[in-house]
Amino acid sequence: MKNQKHVYRRLFASTFYLSAFTFGGGYVIIPLMKKKFVDDLQWIEEEEMLNLTAIAQSSPGAVAVNAAILLGYRVAGISGALVTILGTILPPFITLSIISIFYTAFRDNTVVNAVLKGMQAGVAAVIADVVMSLGSNVFKQKDIVSVIVMVGAFISTFFFGINVMYIILVCGCIGAVKILIQMKKVQKDGDPQ
């Protein structure tokens, strides 16, 4: 019971902390969650983190909230999900409540702007760091289809601005077809499986 409480507190603290420092939403929080839950706490595997991200991205609503729900659910069921939702929405709720009262002063303050600009540079570095680790793992698998999917998805979203929903649908289908072909091949080779 004490252990359970400890998990909830850890879940709340981690998501609150991540959400409080995540500027720019969605894809910024995913690398941070990966660092926290996969690398530091080792509560989930890298592969599972990417699976959960894929689900978060394909569901309606904010990616950060969806990912938090999935993480909470994965670690501690429905009550875990409630804890992570609260942890994720409280920081923006508090910040925005304060800012909406002073927003013109905030917007025009140059020091505030410089701090935010500096933090953006830090965020860019954090994302670059995570992309290097995740990307090199995809290359290390030596699976040509995965590499093509990764490069293709990057080009479609970055250079052509294709809707992420379509990219996800197509890449999911490619994965399904790939595995079905593999199964057919195995059957042809006379393997009972």
């Binding site: 910024v28 995913i30 990307g135 995809v138 590499v147 293709g152 890449c171 999911g172 595995i179």
Partner: peptide, 22 residues
């Protein structure tokens, strides 16, 4: 199979968002 197709996609999407921020 579907998830194995989605994992590299997510890496690509994070990379794309990261490059925009950069």
């Amino acid at each position: 199979g579907i998830l194995s197709g989605l994992r590299p996609t997510i890496v690509a999407l994070i990379a794309s968002a990261g490059l925009s921020i950069f």
